[in-house]
Amino acid sequence: MDKQMTAAEVVSQLEDGMTIGIGGWGPRRKPMALVREILRSDLKELTVVSYGGADVGMLCAAGKVKKVVFAFVSLDFIPLEPYFRIARQTGAIEVMEIDEGMMLLGLRAAAWGLPYIPTEVGLGTDIVTKNPAIKVIDSPYDDKEWVAMPALRLDVSLIHVDRADKRGVCQIAGPDHYMDDMYARAAGKTFVSCDELVPTEFFHNPAEARLVHWERSATTGVVHIPGGAHPSSCTPLYGFDVPHFKAYAASAKEENGIQGYLDQFLGASEEDYQKNVGGLDAIRSIELPTY
């Protein structure tokens, strides 16, 4: 089976109003090239589920988003994502604000075909008072009440990985795969961009196969986009682009800032984009972050 496709073919399978899960964490290993392809499309009214970074900020700023399901949206070294702030502070988007762990439970429930997973997380906080869609229930086994974290069923997930073969065996070689395995399993279709396309024999080395976090049946399509996580990181291949994120954040202070940012960088294709940010070699030479 050959699951290779282009970013444009991925986006052609998305529809207005879909719920899209985006893997990665803050400024780390985001499928930004696929996000950029959405920015180039006329898609709208999306619900985005994400441990959010610039993926969420850019989609909000470009008017693609109806609702964000989030626990945070942050660029880490720039703690507050500038365009997500604007979207919230202008009331432009609906939100479901949840705890980081609740998002994991919601994805797990969707992956496992459950309507909800009970948890005590959220009790006593505004998570349960501000989210009418999140119910508090009695337990058949004790006298306590519990939060019934609903399944976060995704129409599509978008994920960036270090390596994949054409059949959708995906390797995340960096230190953390975050919740990407659950994003892959919680979605009807999962599209993965990869920095390197490798032959299946690559995984015959068990040390490489150990870094595969879901089986290929959970991968719908594979897009080979070297540098496709930029400006987020893809440790150990490259770090996140601090000057680029600073310029992005600064653009949010300008009148109609996102248009200026997009005019400067987005281009008509990923090839254009990479030219506009200095080329793949420049991306691959970005220093890894120190935590």
Partner: peptide, 16 residues
Amino acid sequence: YEQPKVMMLGARGFPG
């Protein structure tokens, strides 16, 4: 809540 004056980080892991 629908339109806060200042949006900050989000609830992060604080509830849990």
